[in-house]
Simulated scan of single mutants.
Amino acid sequence: MFGKFLLTVAVIAIIWFGYKYLGHLAELKRRDSSPRPSERPGREPRDAKVDAEAMVECRVCGTWQPSRTARSCGKADCPY
């Protein structure tokens, strides 16, 4: 009697965990087949258009400006 109960519990556990495992495999397959954000047509990755530019700090007023287009802050001692 107890042996039949354990066998029934074992069969149910095997079916349950097998079902969860197959669901997990299906989810992994779905993720692999879906296009990644960088592969979607008409969209470029965020970092594709990023051009970093050096910044310089005005030693008079403390503001930061792009080094190529730095302009005077209007104060007498401004180096730009």
Rank of each mutant, 00 (worst) to 15 (best):
A54R: 01
R71Q: 15
S72H: 13
V60Q: 05
I14V: 15
G62N: 10
C61L: 04
S38K: 01
G62L: 09
L28T: 04
A13W: 07
E57S: 11
R46E: 12
S34Y: 06
R36Q: 08
S38Q: 08
A13Q: 06
R30E: 04
L7T: 11
A70I: 02
I15D: 08
G74A: 03
R71F: 15
C61E: 09
K20P: 05
R68L: 13
R46C: 04
S67Y: 11
G74K: 07
V9M: 13
V60M: 08
S67I: 12
R71V: 15
L22G: 01
P35W: 00
G74D: 00
T63C: 04
E57Q: 15
P37H: 08
D51F: 04
P79G: 00
A26H: 09
L6V: 14
A13E: 03
G23S: 00
V11T: 11
F5G: 06
F5R: 13
R30T: 06
W16P: 00
K20A: 08
K75D: 05
R68T: 15
P45L: 12
Q65R: 11
R40W: 12
F17E: 15
L6D: 14
P35F: 06
I15Q: 04
L28E: 11
E44R: 14
K75R: 15
I12N: 01
A48W: 04
E39D: 12
A48T: 05
Y19N: 11
A54F: 01
G23E: 01
R43I: 12
G62A: 07
E44Y: 07
P37E: 01
K75C: 08
L6H: 09
C78P: 07
R71T: 15
R68I: 12
S38H: 05
H24W: 12
Y21C: 07
C58Q: 08
E53V: 05
P37Q: 00
W16H: 00
A10Y: 09
P35G: 00
E39K: 10
R46K: 12
G62M: 06
Q65T: 14
D51G: 01
Y80C: 11
M55I: 05
S34N: 08
S72L: 11
C61Q: 07
K49E: 08
L25Y: 09
R40T: 10
F2T: 13
A10H: 02
Y19D: 06
K49V: 03
C73N: 06
A13H: 02
E57L: 03
V11P: 06
F2S: 13
P79F: 02
P35T: 00
S72W: 08
S33G: 00
G3N: 10
C78L: 09
L7Q: 15
R43L: 09
V9L: 14
I15K: 11
A70T: 04
R31W: 11
R43F: 09
L25I: 14
P41N: 10
A48Y: 03
A54T: 02
R36Y: 09
W64D: 04
K49T: 08
C58S: 13
S38L: 06
L25P: 01
A54S: 01
E39Q: 13
R46L: 15
G74M: 02
G74Y: 01
L25R: 07
A52M: 10
R40D: 10
A13M: 10
A10W: 13
D77G: 06
A13G: 01
